[in-house]
């Protein structure tokens, strides 16, 4: 029984590791698309879990202060009013920041979902590469 539990634990760790790894790759692709010219992208996040994921990406660096960040990765905070670029991690928050966030990435139905909001991308003069175009929405 102990053996079986150990196997199941290992399996769940590897499952999580696999999904986190997958998520890190997606964030890497998103940030590279948003900041194609930057070698290091400074990211502020309100979620420890997301900060941990971002640590796996060599092109990003977590910062403690929102002012030092190139982009804010928001998972729960709703009252941020700053010109710094925002990117959210759930659909409800995206709806909340639909006028300022450039987009969001979240899991739904076990599937990764990426949405970029065209109007907000334009505000930051961001032109996404062709591979990201299918995720661009005019509005929510």
């Amino acid at each position: 029984m102990k053996k079986l539990l150990f196997i199941l634990m290992l399996a769940s760790i590897s499952l999580f590791a696999s999904q986190a790894n997958y998520e890190a790759k997606i964030y890497n692709a998103i940030f590279n698309a948003l900041f194609p010219a930057k070698r290091t992208i400074y990211v502020w996040s309100d979620s420890k879990q997301k900060s941990d994921i971002l640590r796996q990406i060599s092109a990003t660096q977590s910062v403690d202060s929102k002012e030092d960040a190139d982009i804010l990765l928001l998972s729960k905070t709703k009252n941020i009013d700053t010109k710094t670029m925002k990117f959210v991690t759930n659909y409800q928050l995206l709806k909340h920041y639909k006028k300022s966030a450039v987009g969001g990435f979240y899991w739904k139905k076990g599937r990764p979902n990426i949405i970029f909001l065209k109007k907000n991308l334009d505000k930051y003069h961001i032109s996404l590469p062709q591979s990201m175009q299918e995720y661009v929405e005019d509005e929510l």
């Binding site: 659909y91 739904k108 139905k109 599937r111 990764p112 979902n113 990426i114 949405i115 995720y135």
Partner: peptide, 11 residues
């Protein structure tokens, strides 16, 4: 959280 709203896009 898993519930999708009408017209919400799903990849």
């Amino acid at each position: 959280e898993e519930k999708g709203e009408l017209d919400e896009k799903l990849n």
